[in-house]
């Protein structure tokens, strides 16, 4: 696969052309909130943002999604039927997150039509992170600031230019159809390599997490859970902002003779998530709910998907009201093993 180069000034032209066939989503700031939203004609993406407050997963998997409408006559299904979606400027961690969530919504036996309607035919342009943040830890889980997992094109900001590195033939063909690119020169690629090295080395050495699953599986009743969860408030900030959390609830919103069935994000952090019809709640304490979140990400998902359910984006670290840092937890768990 070749690498292509485009002048920064020409990017808006490229995005305009991309908009002809795609609904282009990019990081924007509006009303004081940073999130991924569909670009209006002529709107410039806010590339300075590494971590949007709201995760880009909501583009494929909205927080509230109408599944169908109903009235006395019957029901009308509702499925996304807009243009295919192109996400521009997603960071490599979030791009990797799509792949993880996807394995929940699409598996060999079942395909979720709501996810597929938005996801099929979509394009992900990941923007490499030249300067990872203190709260970033993608390299703990095999990712990296220049990682290509989950993206169709990796975009690298080299100062004056953007380099476009497609990861599949479809994406490469699309780039050549849109045009406006030159082949990247050796100097460009060397420059990108340097940026990559600098970004990667700025993140430091990740701790060894090989034993985490095993330690967790043997720590179900450990007093550690009480200690870690002591300051947890039990809100949904971490799970709602997480690129790999996918749990949902289904609710009917009705009024007289009509209504909608809505699929909405739910979270293991709420007591209602597990409360049974009888009133019994198997996860009564916040300790057990926090344990579920960590076990799911670092043990169960390793078992079912063969990878950690965390991409190290660090949103939960920066947004948590009490600064409950998942990295502290992992380091404590890794240390447990040595005891």
């Amino acid at each position: 696969m070749s690498v292509y180069r485009i002048k920064k000034d020409d990017l808006s032209l490229f995005l305009e052309k991309l908009r002809e066939d795609f609904a282009v989503y990019a990081p924007v700031e509006s009303d004081g909130i940073t999130s991924f939203a569909e670009l209006e004609p002529g709107q410039e993406p806010a590339f300075g943002i590494l971590k949007t407050q709201k995760p880009p997963k909501e583009v494929f998997y909205p927080q509230n999604e109408i599944m169908f409408r109903f009235n006395e006559e019957g029901m009308t299904p509702e499925l996304y039927d807009g243009k295919p979606i192109a996400l521009f400027g997603v960071r490599p961690c979030d791009a990797k997150g799509f792949n993880i969530i996807e394995r929940v919504f699409i598996d060999p036996k079942y395909e979720d039509p709501y996810w597929s309607a938005r996801r099929k035919g979509s394009l992900v342009f990941a923007l490499a992170c030249n300067e990872p943040l203190l709260s970033c830890f993608c390299n703990w889980f095999g990712g990296g600031p220049f990682d290509k997992t989950g993206s169709d094109v990796l975009v690298i900001d080299t100062g004056e230019d953007y380099l476009f590195e497609p990861t599949n033939e479809g994406a490469e063909k699309l780039l050549s159809n849109i045009g406006g690119f030159e082949k990247a020169e050796k100097a460009d690629i060397e420059k990108a390599g340097k940026l990559r090295k600098k970004a990667e080395s700025s993140m430091g050495e990740p701790p060894k997490l090989d034993s985490v699953k095993e330690t967790l599986d043997n720590s179900w009743n450990s007093p550690l859970w009480d200690r870690i969860s002591a300051k947890c408030l039990g809100c949904a900030v971490c799970t709602f902002s997480c690129p790999t959390c996918y749990c949902f609830d289904i609710q009917d919103e009705t009024r007289r003779d009509k209504g909608t069935r809505v699929r909405l994000w739910d979270t293991c952090q709420f007591p209602l998530f597990t409360k049974e019809g009888s009133g019994h709640n198997p996860r009564k304490s916040q300790t057990s709910r926090l344990r579920q979140r960590f076990m799911h990400k670092f043990s169960y998902m390793v078992e079912t998907l063969n990878e950690f359910g965390c991409v190290g984006c660090g949103r939960c670290v920066t947004l948590c009201p009490v600064n409950l840092d998942v990295r502290d937890f992992l380091e404590k768990i890794a240390a447990e093993k040595d005891k």
Binding site: K54, Q63, L233, G234, C235, A236, V237, F240, W265, T267, F270, P321, V322
Partner: peptide, 9 residues
């Protein structure tokens, strides 16, 4: 987004 962080804090 009804995360209830305000309530829980």
């Amino acid at each position: 987004i009804r995360c209830y962080a305000c309530r829980n804090a």
